[in-house]
């Protein structure tokens, strides 16, 4: 039984990372109606920045973490202004293609700046475990869950309680009406890209200690995040987080208790989740089924 709970907790830890990245995907999807395929590479880029600050510039972990968040926010705003805004009003497929291009460019850029070498990254959390009722839980897992959920909650409070957060939701869902009340829609979308980039950076920096730092480190995480977002409902922020946690726990238990799945079949299982959700309940667990307007 203890082993079971241990697997659940470590599933929650990876799940909270999927949830955070899924949420950043959902934020951009709500605002622009497209999936940002570059979300994972943006997170990788941010993680390298934090790593550089720590190893080459004498930063300790958390200050580097915060600086990386700020830089990521600005980078997200910059990406929106430079390459997304010019195609935003056109057909959506153009935006999709731009994000795929961005994925390739960022991946190439990371390899060019930092080389493709795989590097170990120090974790900000102690390598010990604590004993909770006979279950040994690692600080790494607890810390990961705490940081992800805290980021999500802060973001949620921002969207609910602040004027700018409200304006951003309006800009994403009813742009024409939002402009009529004086909201500068394009500016709000840019801030949305910034916040999504910062949240992705959180996911990246928490992923790095367990998978090592490399230009492709977020590839599988991104696919899990897609699955989480689809599972929860691609337009539902709450759904993205819950979807991430469900997926994390589910995959972990599947890998532990179903022999033939092991650790190699995680990705196919995630793709299966995407497929089944799209067939059975396209709006996801938390999404509102779209009412077709006649």
């Amino acid at each position: 039984m203890a082993a079971f709970f241990q697997q659940v907790v470590s599933g929650l830890a990876s799940g909270s990372i999927y949830g955070a990245l899924a949420l950043s995907i959902v934020l951009i999807h709500r605002a622009t109606g497209v999936i940002n395929f570059a979300q994972g590479e943006m997170a990788t880029f941010s993680t390298y920045i934090a790593w550089t600050l720590v190893t080459h510039h004498g930063f300790s972990y958390w200050p580097a973490f915060v600086v990386a968040l700020v830089v990521s926010f600005l980078g997200g705003v910059g990406i929106h202004e430079a390459v997304i805004r010019p195609v935003e009003r056109g057909p959506r497929i153009r935006v999709v293609i731009v994000t795929i291009g961005l994925l390739l460019v960022l991946n190439g850029l990371v390899t060019w700046i930092w080389s493709g070498e795989v590097r170990a990254v120090q974790s900000p959390f102690p390598a010990r475990t604590i004993d909770v009722g006979g279950v040994a839980i690692s600080w790494q897992d607890i810390g990961t869950i705490a940081v992800c959920l805290l980021s999500v909650l802060v973001l949620g409070a921002f969207f609910r309680c602040t004027k700018t957060g409200l304006a951003m939701r309006a800009a994403a869902t009813n742009p024409a009406e939002a402009r009529l009340v004086g909201v500068r829609v394009s500016r709000m979308l840019a801030v949305g890209w910034g916040l999504a980039a910062a949240l992705g950076a959180v996911a990246g920096m928490l992923t790095a200690p367990s998978v090592f730092l490399s230009p492709n480190m977020m590839l599988t995480v991104l696919i899990y995040a897609f699955a989480a977002a689809v599972l929860g409902g691609i337009d539902s922020p709450v759904g993205a987080v819950v979807g991430g946690l469900l997926l994390g726990v589910g995959l972990n238990l599947l890998g532990t208790y179903v022999d033939f799945v092991g650790s190699d079949l995680g990705l196919p299982a995630a793709l299966l989740v995407i497929l089944v959700v799209l067939l059975v309940r396209p709006a996801g667990l938390f999404g509102k089924p779209r009412v077709r307007k006649v």
Binding site: K163, L166, A167, R169, A170, T173, N174, A176, E177, A178, R179, L180, V181, G182, V183
Partner: peptide, 29 residues
């Protein structure tokens, strides 16, 4: 809007995804 013109467009123009109170808060944006 910033100059002080409030336009209620043809066919309502509420922010359909937001709550009633949020619509009002946003009106004061």
């Amino acid at each position: 809007a910033r100059a002080g013109i409030a336009h209620v467009p043809e066919g309502r123009g509420t922010l359909t995804e937001l709550s009633v109170i949020e619509n009002l808060r946003l009106g004061a944006y």
